[in-house]
């Protein structure tokens, strides 16, 4: 294995560890967030971190398939977060 491949392998691994740790923090905030808006914000962060993790998986395997999954996650993250924010506002109006 050449030096470049070694460098790339280890830095991708380290980046994946960072992103996994970040996803664990966000999951902690989803589970223990004191209020609903904290949970929604943490879920949005979890989506973004998961998207970055998919991109690093794409770099590790060298296929562009993971890119499509990342794009889908970006779209779904936007839709779900804005829908949940709307619900937080409107759900109490109806109450």
């Amino acid at each position: 294995m050449t030096a470049a491949a070694l460098l790339l392998t280890w830095s991708v691994l380290l980046a994946q560890l960072f992103l996994g740790l970040a996803m664990a923090f966000a999951a902690f905030r989803v589970l223990w967030g004191p209020r609903a808006q904290d949970r929604v914000l943490a879920l949005d962060t979890l989506y973004v971190n998961g998207m970055m993790l998919l991109l690093t998986f794409g770099i590790r395997t060298g296929t562009t398939l993971y890119f499509e999954a990342a794009l889908v996650i970006a779209l779904l993250g936007f839709v779900s977060t804005s829908a949940l924010a709307k619900f937080l506002m409107r759900g109490e109006v109806i109450e």
């Binding site: 491949a5 790339l8 830095s11 380290l14 980046a15 970055m52 770099i59 590790r60 060298g62």
Partner: peptide
């Protein structure tokens, strides 16, 4: 697991640095 292909070092170095920087920033934000 080994990275799929061999890159020249002038490309591997910025890719590695940018990846680490991006992941570190995401970790800091979270």
């Amino acid at each position: 697991q080994a990275v799929a292909a061999d890159l020249p070092i002038w490309a591997a170095l910025p890719v590695a640095l940018l990846l680490l920087l991006g992941a570190g920033l995401a970790l800091t934000g979270t």
